[in-house]
Nucleic acid binder design. Structure first.
Length: 117
DNA sequence: GTTGTGACGACTT
DNA sequence: AAAGTCGCCACAA
């Protein structure tokens, strides 16, 4: 049985909608913020199935290493890169600089990374 | 039910 | 730094 609770998808969509222009968040960071630690893949799934009418800033979501999670060169990859650069998010060697564009939450997670949790 | 795949992430080589 | 492994879990075949 167990599909994802539709309410969780809604929470994820709302959280993604909060990402300010010119900033990025990680899949795992979004998951943590909605109270679903270790559920990064669910965030990816949520974006994949998100209704287009929501107009989510999905391009502001990258993986924990700052990389776009589409195959390099794919149409989706190019679209995401283009949208990011258009709002001032520069990619260095295919990476977003979290220190300058990442949300505080994600930064903390990257710097602290307490053992075990 | 099992297997493979994926818009992930943490850890280990 | 890059690749491999494992945990995670939704979904299609």
């Amino acid at each position: 049985m167990a599909g994802p609770d539709p309410k969780l998808l809604e929470r994820i969509w709302k959280e993604v909608a909060k990402i300010p222009r010119g900033q990025v968040a990680s899949y795992g960071g979004i998951a943590r913020r909605v109270g679903l630690p270790r559920r990064a893949r669910l965030v990816g799934h949520a974006l994949k199935v998100a209704p287009g009418h929501l107009r989510l800033p999905w391009h502001r979501v990258v993986n924990a290493r700052g990389k776009i999670s589409f195959p390099p060169g794919s149409p989706s990859y190019r679209l995401q890169r283009e949208r990011l650069e258009r709002e001032g998010v520069r990619l260095r060697n295919g990476r977003v600089n979290f220190a300058s564009h990442g949300l505080a939450d994600d930064l903390d997670a990257l710097l602290w990374r307490p053992r075990g949790a």
